[in-house]
Design a binder for these strands. Structure first.
Lengths: 245, 245
DNA sequence: ACGGGCGATATGTCTATACATAAACTCGCT
DNA sequence: AGCGAGTTTATGTATAGACATATCGCCCGT
């Protein structure tokens, strides 16, 4: 009979997960507040009757999740919670509407190809001249306008986009499936609808709109810049944050 | 001479990190697209001349970061990127203003204690009657209004809040330092300023505003609900996403 | 053809051990 | 006291081997 069978909590699946969850619980309930020193690996090891590697695996995962901080020689400490950060999901619009159980609709409003002017280069963040595609289109759910999309694609960085047909499929979906990216930045702000937006979204001029601007890069090179305009009182971005699992 | 000395890339610090970064790079550059099967552990092990535990550690971290998916017997696969999710930092307002190098200012507008009415209970998500504190205050940067805060605190869940003085310090900071929480939810939307908001933020009535609503729980029990209203054209929430490290 | 059972296989967990490394502490010298 | 060198200690990385477990496919019997 091995020592491993003397487990303190035999019920919770695997040992390292048990250890991880025990510690996580103590942190989340406040029993071990920020700054508190967690028992040393050899203490936990003795408590659960397991090897140090097992304890180390549990603690490493908690460290990767930023719940604890580990310092050589000093020990392991509860981190101050990352108070106000959250994972915000900004899904692909088509998938988002599908998830709501509504019928997705798409209309291309305009699509032009041109040599980038100063405003285009500014928006994409490129310095040298390049060709771009500028697209304006509309997404709808059950035939109700859902969002207006205004996109710029750098043709030098994404040459395949010249061959793509955005009359039927939205450029977002096409890009997601064809172009790998390495960095993305989102900015969220609010504006009021001008006449053009109001008409496109079928809302009143002066109504609030939520704007999401996304820039995408591949190894530092700008790929695309997109501006999504949502009716602000009907649409909300929701982010939920909780302890792991 | 041990096999371990035949390492493919001796320069990058530790072995498992080298392996992890090599794989991450291939995924991020698109060399291994979503759905691609990553070499089996024993293949990677042979390639780097190391033990399986080392490979396993690298792959486990990538799996924890959702870059890959591991399936017993089948192998390890590149996941479809979490395309449009991003870590959105919604910092403590005082810290945010401080980080911008501007002077933080705070004014308490009103603070009332009462038994929760139906609207309060609805907003907090509690069913049974309880006492609450309702606070309205304003944050400013260099004496320019920055955001209006409208907060409800459940006194049954946070009894200490009854003793706190919110005349000088904002309730957000106090709560962050005194109350551990386990879950939080943020919702972002846009509204137009009504007369009260316009006056508080020193903007025109009808101007767009960004609204962040945050609900915080501790083990399922609602603690506080807060609504932050920002001038929408001046304030943006920015989230940047990139590969780890 | 169809479905059940079974073996092969890749990942999942765990052990016992070893040496590396960073940082905190001790102690002795000036 | 102040400072630098050496020691101690907790974590960090790595190993070789073992057994567990999910599941994909194959084969076999009906």
């Amino acid at each position: 009979m091995s020592l491993a069978e003397d487990r303190v909590k035999p019920g919770a699946g695997t040992l390292y997960k048990t250890i991880r969850q025990d510690i996580e619980r103590r942190i989340l309930t406040g029993e071990w507040p920020p700054g508190h020193r967690i028992p040393f690996e050899h203490e936990i090891m003795a408590r659960y009757g397991c090897s140090r590697m097992t304890v180390n695996k549990a603690l490493s995962e908690l460290a990767q999740a930023d719940l604890i901080e580990r310092r050589r020689r000093a020990g392991t400490f509860v981190r101050r919670p990352q108070f106000l950060s959250a994972v915000l999901k900004i899904p692909d619009i088509r998938a988002e509407i599908g998830a709501l159980g509504r019928a997705y609709g798409y209309q291309l409003i305009s699509s032009t190809r041109r040599t980038a002017n100063a405003a285009d280069r500014e928006r994409l963040g490129v310095k040298k001249p390049c060709k771009v595609i500028a697209i304006r289109c509309r997404h709808s759910a059950d035939n109700v306008p859902f969002a207006i999309e205004d996109r710029l694609i750098d043709l030098d960085a994404v040459p395949d986009a010249a061959k793509a047909d955005f009359k039927i499929d939205p450029p977002g979906s096409w890009l997601l499936h064809h172009v790998p990216w390495t960095e993305a930045e989102h900015a969220i702000s609010a504006i009021v609808a001008d006449d053009t937006i109001a008409e496109g979204l079928d809302i009143a001029t002066g109504a609030p709109c939520l704007v999401i601007e996304r820039h995408t890069w591949r190894k530092g090179q700008p790929l695309t810049a997109v501006r999504l305009i949502y009716p602000g009182e009907q649409h909300r971005l929701v982010a939920r944050f909780r302890g792991s699992e």
